[in-house]
């Protein structure tokens, strides 16, 4: 028989993520799993080590504000047109979370090294920046293949998340998930030990049966579990499926200016299970 990795609810999905996990999240504009993030907060998860691929916004701000996060490796955390991420910024200033500042291609490259099963990967640029100066896990080597003279080259360790968690438009009942042109979700899934996915819909067709859909599909072999989450990216925009809930986001930005305002917001927003 074929095993199915489709589970019944988001709460069941995120129950697999233990406290202290190394968790990779996509950027807000490309499949941020907001329903699953609320479920994690509802569960009271603690001490997460977030890796934002390569940036984040509301997903990280909520988890940080809820006290669920020990560290964040990121190239940028911002609410885009809504401004800075208030709880993330406050936590960095108060020193309640550790931040490992990176740059976008370094996060992708580290994950790509993990995809390939190699310990490190070189990357151009970055030399002479303070991003490099504050990263004791990044090194500069001499390019061993330089045709003439010295060619200093940044090398980065592989990034191996324990979990990748993201939201997609569609999954099938076999647990294949369709990501379309958002190929960085495939990089996350390949690099992570376990990949958990929420999907707007779960269809009966086999996404792997036709080349047209298979090309944009992360096959179930990489996917630990899938749960349906209608409007699973709300209040963020999700592709061409729905726009951002601007009023909600504006209210959030106002509320989250203070820790108390954030706590009020959180009570209202995570109290009940998301509509699935």
């Amino acid at each position: 028989m074929t095993e199915s990795n489709v589970v019944d609810s988001i709460d069941e999905l995120v129950a697999r993520i233990p406290d202290g996990a190394r968790l990779a999240l996509p950027k807000d504009s490309a499949g941020a799993p907001m329903g699953a993030v609320r479920a994690l907060i509802r569960r009271g998860v603690r001490d997460l080590h977030l890796i934002t691929v390569p940036t984040s916004g509301l997903a990280t701000d909520l988890l940080v504000g809820a006290g669920s996060v020990a560290s964040v490796e990121t190239s940028g955390v911002s609410l885009g047109e809504f401004g800075g991420a208030p709880r993330f910024n406050a936590a960095v200033k108060q020193g309640t979370i550790a931040v490992r500042d990176a740059t976008c291609p370094a996060i992708y490259a580290g994950l790509q090294a993990a995809e390939k099963g190699i310990p490190f990967i070189p990357l151009r640029g970055v030399i002479g920046s303070d991003v490099l100066a504050y990263r004791d896990d990044w090194k500069v080597i001499d390019n061993p293949f330089a045709p003439h003279g010295k060619d200093p080259l940044l090398v980065l360790p592989a990034i191996e998340p324990e979990f990748a968690l993201f939201h997609v438009r569609r999954a099938d009942r076999f647990g294949n998930v369709w990501i379309g042109v958002n190929g960085e979700l495939a990089i996350m899934a390949h690099a992570a030990a376990h990949t958990l996915v929420t999907a707007e819909e779960i269809v009966d067709d086999d996404l792997m049966a036709e080349e047209g859909t298979a090309a944009g599909t992360v096959p179930a072999v990489y996917v630990t579990a899938v749960a349906q989450a209608r409007k699973g990216a709300w209040p963020l925009a999700f592709l061409d499926q729905y726009p951002a809930d601007d009023r909600h986001l504006a209210n959030y930005v106002r509320a989250a200016r203070s820790a108390e305002g954030f706590d009020d917001y959180l009570r209202h927003c995570t109290e009940s299970a998301d509509d699935t």
């Binding site: 940028g76 955390v77 993330f88 500042d101 740059t103 970055v126 991003v131």
Partner: peptide
């Protein structure tokens, strides 16, 4: 605190 370096370092 601002958002972070994004892709600028590269």
């Amino acid at each position: 605190r601002w958002p972070g370096s994004f892709g600028s370092s590269y």
